[in-house]
Amino acid sequence: MEQSLGTRTAADSPVCAPRPAARPDTLAQGRTSPVNSFNEWDPLEEVIVGRLEGATIPSDHPVVTCNVPSWAGRLQGLAAGLRYPRRLIGQAQDELDGFVELLESLGITVRRPEAVDHKQRFRTPDWSSRGFCNTCPRDSMLVIGDEIIETPMAWPCRYFETHSYRPLLKDYFRRGARWTSAPKPQLTDELYEPGFRTPGADEPMRYILTEFEPVFDAADFVRAGRDLFVTRSNVTNRTGIEWLRRHLGPGYRIHEITSSCRTPMHIDTTFMPLAPGKVLINPEYVDPGKLPEVLRSWDVLVAPEPDPIDERLLKVTSMCGKWLSMNVLMLDEKRVIAERHHTGMLRALERWGFEPVPCDLLHYAPFGGSFHCATLDVRRRGTLQSYVD
């Protein structure tokens, strides 16, 4: 784990520098919110796409390394806080630029966070760390209707990640959106199980997180109108799920998806609603017979085995795993952006009645994911509805 350096405070770091307060007369009064997204498939109009600039290898905190093989955890301990190799960044940046161009060519407004130097060290009264990256807005923010919720993430190196999105959040707020932040977690030792070991295939499931305080990544949730689906994981605990349930109130229901993944982190390679009445599942992690009863009338689409990729790339993407083939982005109920390399998934989507839009983002995986991870759909053209029994 990274050690504290001196007495530098969070306010001393450029990452955490305060910004001027908004003038009261710039706040929206009775305007239609620019934020509006209730599900994963209504027609997409505006999206935030992450950035690669300034990305550094995440820390060797146990909550980070528990999701990778032991050899990768040891290597990460040596490289934590260093820049990713230039060659790795270059390939991913070319693909990311192409993805942004594709979205814009389809008439979708693309917004971007600020570039940040994630090597800057920051601290709280209890610990210090360097950052990670702002490649995956899907993790740190959750959009429910006209509200953007900043999530209480469990990785210390991601503590200030949403600061790079603050200019966007302030703009949305001034124009009429609701902006909420879940309770900022302490992330002290009480939150993590001491000596945690990943359970074997024949052992009961266990997680590195205790219930000391609410923590969750937004990417452990997917939305289907009045119903949300969540996986408990090594970044999302039951207390975090309960916080969101109470925050949203009786107008929404949250259902837990049971995953057999031994290193669970994020639902979008496990369970992905694609359209009203259609959900894509990972056959290695999800038993169709154990899905929530509210999905009994839905078509359950079983993801095909992912196409093989370069073994060297798979090693550096071990935190995401091979099932990033499922990490698709719906443009509407028919059109779906999917990885060009995963031809099996493209063919399956066509068989199921979708219109796949192939795109390259294979080399983005070492930085946290693919199309769904790399985006946050801010506005979709639709209204709040119920899609389940």
Rank of each mutant, 00 (worst) to 15 (best):
M1F: 10
L5V: 14
V15L: 15
P18M: 10
A21S: 14
R23N: 11
V35Y: 03
F38V: 05
F38H: 12
W41F: 15
P43A: 00
L44W: 04
E45S: 12
G50P: 07
E53H: 13
V64Q: 10
S70V: 14
S70R: 11
Q76M: 14
L78E: 10
R83L: 09
P85E: 06
G90S: 15
A92N: 09
Q93W: 06
E95K: 06
L103E: 07
L103F: 02
E104W: 01
T109S: 14
V110R: 06
E114A: 10
D117Q: 06
D117A: 11
H118N: 02
G131R: 01
F132M: 07
F132S: 08
N134I: 13
R138H: 06
S140A: 12
S140T: 11
M141N: 02
V143T: 07
I144C: 11
W155R: 09
C157E: 08
R158D: 02
F160M: 06
P167H: 06
K170Q: 15
R175S: 04
A182N: 03
K184R: 14
L187M: 09
Y192N: 06
E193S: 13
E193R: 14
E193M: 12
F196V: 05
P199Y: 10
E213K: 06
D220R: 08
F221H: 01
F229L: 01
R232Y: 08
R246F: 09
H247A: 08
G249P: 04
Y252D: 03
C261L: 13
M265C: 12
D268Q: 06
P273M: 08
A275E: 13
G277P: 04
G277L: 06
V279A: 08
I281V: 14
N282Q: 06
V286N: 09
P288T: 05
P288M: 05
P292M: 05
P292L: 07
E293K: 13
R296Q: 12
E311G: 05
S318A: 15
W323H: 14
L329A: 09
E333T: 14
I337M: 10
E350V: 13
R351H: 12
R351D: 15
W352E: 12
V357A: 09
C359Q: 11
L361I: 01
H363T: 07
H363V: 04
G368L: 01
G369T: 00
G369R: 00
F371I: 00
C373L: 08
L376N: 04
R381E: 14
D389K: 02
